[in-house]
């Protein structure tokens, strides 16, 4: 039964290679490794405008990812967007006067929440709220304002 045993080896190699390919796709290509449901706590923040922020967008502090956005909804009473974030338990020493702002990574990159720690002695806890927020910068708005300002200055110079 020698040829049959060789065949078995090759079939085993083939199946192992296929499964290795699947593992490679899951761990190296997709976000499964970053998706681990570690111990985390939840905080919320209210923004005037979330821009293009999405569920699962990154939450980072000093450029390091510390959590992810888990929910975004519109509060029809205050007309603000409420963003719920899961922060990894190991970063449980964020001061309660932390500022949350929505930034864009690069000019065309995706948007993320940036946490800037304040100087308070007490820390944010589970279900804590961030009071100081800065809305996303809408590029079109900024360009519009810039153009408007430039035109105004030009008009003043003429007079």
């Amino acid at each position: 039964m020698q040829p049959s045993r060789n065949q078995d080896t090759l079939v085993g190699l083939f199946v192992a290679a296929g499964i290795a390919g699947l593992f490679f796709l899951s761990l190296k290509v997709s976000n499964l490794s970053a998706f681990s449901q570690d111990e985390s706590y939840t905080i919320t923040a209210r923004f005037e405008n979330t821009g293009g922020l999405k569920v699962r967008s990154a939450v980072s502090a000093a450029g390091v990812k510390v959590g992810q956005v888990s929910d975004i909804y519109f509060d029809s009473k205050t007309y603000q967007a409420v963003v719920t974030m899961h922060i990894n338990q190991q970063y449980n020493t964020l001061p309660d006067d932390t500022t949350a702002s929505i930034f864009t990574s690069g000019l065309l990159g995706e948007q993320y929440v940036n946490l800037e720690p304040g100087g308070s002695d007490s820390y944010l806890t589970d279900n804590g709220k961030i009071d100081i927020t800065q809305p996303a910068i809408i590029l079109e708005k900024a360009i519009g304002q810039f153009l408007f300002k430039a035109a105004e200055e030009k008009g003043e110079a003429k007079e």
Binding site: V15, A17, G18, G21, F24, L25, V29
Partner: peptide, 16 residues
């Protein structure tokens, strides 16, 4: 039925 998903996963993995 067993081979096809394995081959497709290999194709994508080798492709990346």
């Amino acid at each position: 039925c067993i081979s096809m998903p394995l081959l497709a996963a290999l194709f994508s993995a080798i492709g990346t």
